[in-house]
Amino acid sequence: MNKTWNNKAWFMVLPVLLLVAFSAVIPLMTVVNYSVQDTFGNNQFFWNGVSWFSDVLESDRFWQALGRTLLFSGIILTIQIPLGILIALNMPKKGLGVPVCLVLMALPLLIPWNVVGTIWQVFGRVDIGLLGRTLDALGISYNYVNNVFDAWMTLIVMDVWHWTSLVVLLCYAGLVSIPEAYYQAAKIDGASRWAVFRYIQLPKMKRVLLIAFLLRFMDSFMIYTEPFVVTGGGPGNSTTFLSIDLVKMAIGQFDLGPAAAMSIIYFLIILLLSWIFYTVMTSSDEQA
């Protein structure tokens, strides 16, 4: 084969390169810049090596926040993925029910995140909130402001309410793409409802589930706005996730160096975990 070499082709990539540079690389580099330097004001910076990184990695505060974030993501995924599949399986496949269900499902996704937080913040208040008052009237002690368990429950229920729809819509898209012949063949083969799910629906949903899983993992791992509005990281530090901690450190305490180091560690964790999930979940494909 004869290939034509022409170095001018690089000019073709230049616009994208510039765009990515301005939108991602340069902002990221400022963070990298802060993470390896220290300042005593006056815009004077000193080389500080990796000591911010080791400070962050040696602090209990970081590991506790990381633990809380992982726990939150874990709970969210365990609830939302099965629940999303279950709802998608029970959604109508044709008729008037389809648009109705789709719109209902899409509604929570359309609400701005801080509004979602505000809705639940008010909803759960013991003095005026519908949920808070109802639970109180039922004799159930509930107060997300000073009870750690209640605060977590509120955040989890809120996130399930907000984001399960995404899993539902993705799974539903996967389900409707299965040709009718598969269900007919399964009937002929005498397959049970479980067998149909296990051998037809689940394999066909696998790819969209991977996307749903990754999106839900990344979003829940980076959750900031809603807990910030509802609990503000409290009671105590019990709902201080990595993102909230990071903002406290950067904006609250103005510790730019450690905050920058933490940002980079945070970013690398997400990248690493996403890569692991992706590799594990697609590895079975490559064998075939």
Binding site: A181, Q184, A185, K187, I188, G190, Y199, I200, P203
Partner: peptide, 16 residues
């Protein structure tokens, strides 16, 4: 279909 005990092969291959 199950109770009728019929086998059917479709136009496009259906495999698990």
């Amino acid at each position: 279909t199950q109770q009728r005990n019929i086998a059917q092969v479709f136009q496009f291959p259906v495999i698990y």
